[in-house]
Amino acid sequence: NPLPEGCSMLEIERITQSVLKSHIETSHYSTEELKRMAWTLYSPEETRSFQTKSAEVMWQQCAVHITNAIQYVVEFAKHISGFLDLCQNDQIILLKAGCMDVLLIRMCRAYNPINNTMLFDGKFATAHLFKALGCDDLVNSVFDLAKTLSRVQMSEEEMALFSAAVLLSPDRPWLTDVQKIQKLQEKVYVALQRCLQKEGATEQKLAKMVSKLPILKSICNLHIDKLEFFRLVHPETAYTFPPLYREVFGS
């Protein structure tokens, strides 16, 4: 893997460290905490109480959680070396377009493949718990993605670099300085390749990660479709969603 032009090994190392540090500092739970919580499940009664909530209440609750997680992704982005050197227009475009991708990648940390459950509001939940949302296809896609991503067994360093690479996608529409972002992404991918080599992983592992990108994109689009439909049916509730959520997922 040749180094990008004008880029030293020292710089790749600096990027690796900054991205990993940022990922760890902006992850709500550490891997140890997640391991400890993995068997704290919602009881059947608790699950039923979520299932019998109204769609409005459940959407509101999920929107609040997603908004909270977005704030962490913004902080993650800010600490990736080079991100804040981009013009603010591009920073906002990258975040609006990529924060859901990063959230989905991060979700596989909070997924337990043994019982197909995911951490939600302090306990692990099955996909059925989210029935009231009226988006079974979206919820099932998220769980399926978490399942396939967890099989890749990314280390924290790999996940950090993969998240950064996805966030720094130069093909997002309306970007001003595509070249600058392209160079940054290239460096992050080199850092990811070096990290995989260091850990003795095969080339296939990177291919497996990259092969998930179209699925990430389709889930992001599905979320927007579902949100638009919800907005049509329940405009007043959608208006009370957290302002940051509306800002990021508004048209």
Binding site: E25, Q71, V74, E75, L84, Q91, I92, L95, P243, G250
Partner: peptide, 20 residues
């Protein structure tokens, strides 16, 4: 800028997420 007021604020402030 007005449309993305909160994102602008988050990008400019130096607080950590725990303070948000």
């Amino acid at each position: 800028k007005e449309k993305h007021k909160i994102l602008h604020q988050l990008l400019q402030n130096s607080t950590s997420p725990v303070d948000l």
